[in-house]
């Protein structure tokens, strides 16, 4: 009886307690943020430009340290994580950016394999894993192409494949559809949804009202650094 209950209980992946971030005196990028992200969630982080979305992501990646508060990822307090430990934190977090960040002189396959090579995965694992994730993002037939031969949507799918190839528990995407037309943006959303269904938690910072409204997922809204709304099955908001 009690075992079943544990199975049904949610597992907290990320927790922020009273987190604030000041860049310099007067610039309060985040103010007193409290929230939990459970394993398997799909979350939109919304807010106007300058609201603090990217700062939120940088705190999770330890690109920036919080000025105040506590951040816990997978039961580990990362508030004062030593610089030597940071790479191991990042191996558990896949990241995707608006500008794709692919290496122009590597093929699609090599760009994805690169993420495994630098954490010293075995060639056997690489040969198994890379084709699999390329399949998941629908790029099996483009493996030997170079980034300049691909459309924007395809490039973003390569960068998603790279972000998930090491099996992170969470995939963070900072405005992944920002550079794409609406139709292509939807393709990306389909891919992300599919990845989420396979158990990967997804946190996506975005401006795209239509997408947020249609997807009906949890929405965390930031305004001038404060969480003004945190809603299950939410919509983007009233205006913007």
């Amino acid at each position: 009886m009690s075992n079943i209950k544990i199975d049904l209980e949610m597992v907290t992946l990320i927790e922020m307690r009273n987190v604030s971030k000041d860049y310099s005196k007067g610039i309060h990028a985040l103010i007193n943020v409290n929230l939990r992200i459970e394993k398997g969630e799909f979350i939109f982080l919304v807010g106007a430009s300058g609201a603090g979305k990217s700062t939120f992501i940088k705190l999770l990646l330890k690109e920036e340290d919080p000025s105040e508060g506590k951040i816990i990822v997978s039961d580990e307090d990362i508030t004062h994580l030593s610089r030597r430990r940071i790479p191991y934190l990042r191996r558990n977090i896949g990241v995707v950016f608006q500008d794709f960040r692919l290496l122009p002189n590597k093929t699609v396959y090599e760009n994805v394999a690169f993420a495994m090579e630098i954490i010293e995965a075995s060639s056997k694992e690489i040969r198994r894993q890379v084709p699999m994730v390329l399949g998941m993002v629908g790029l099996s037939d483009k493996a030997s192409q170079y980034p300049h031969q691909l459309s924007g949507g395809e490039r973003q799918r390569v960068s998603i494949a790279r972000a998930i190839v090491n099996n992170p528990s969470i995939l963070i995407a900072d405005e992944p559809t920002g550079n794409l037309d609406p139709e292509t943006a939807w393709e990306i959303m389909k891919v992300l949804r599919q990845i989420n269904r396979r158990g990967t938690t997804i946190l996506m910072a975005t401006h795209a009202k239509d997408i947020v409204d249609v997807m009906q997922q949890r929405v965390i809204a930031l305004e001038k650094g404060r969480v003004v709304r945190d809603q299950q099955r939410g919509a983007y908001g009233y205006e913007d």
């Binding site: 610089r83 030597r84 790479p87 990241v95």
Partner: peptide, 16 residues
């Protein structure tokens, strides 16, 4: 630069 930037995000150790 670009390659190093990506390496950092994917979790390459500093010595790597």
């Amino acid at each position: 630069r670009q390659e190093i930037n990506i390496m950092k995000y994917v979790g390459a150790t500093n010595w790597f």
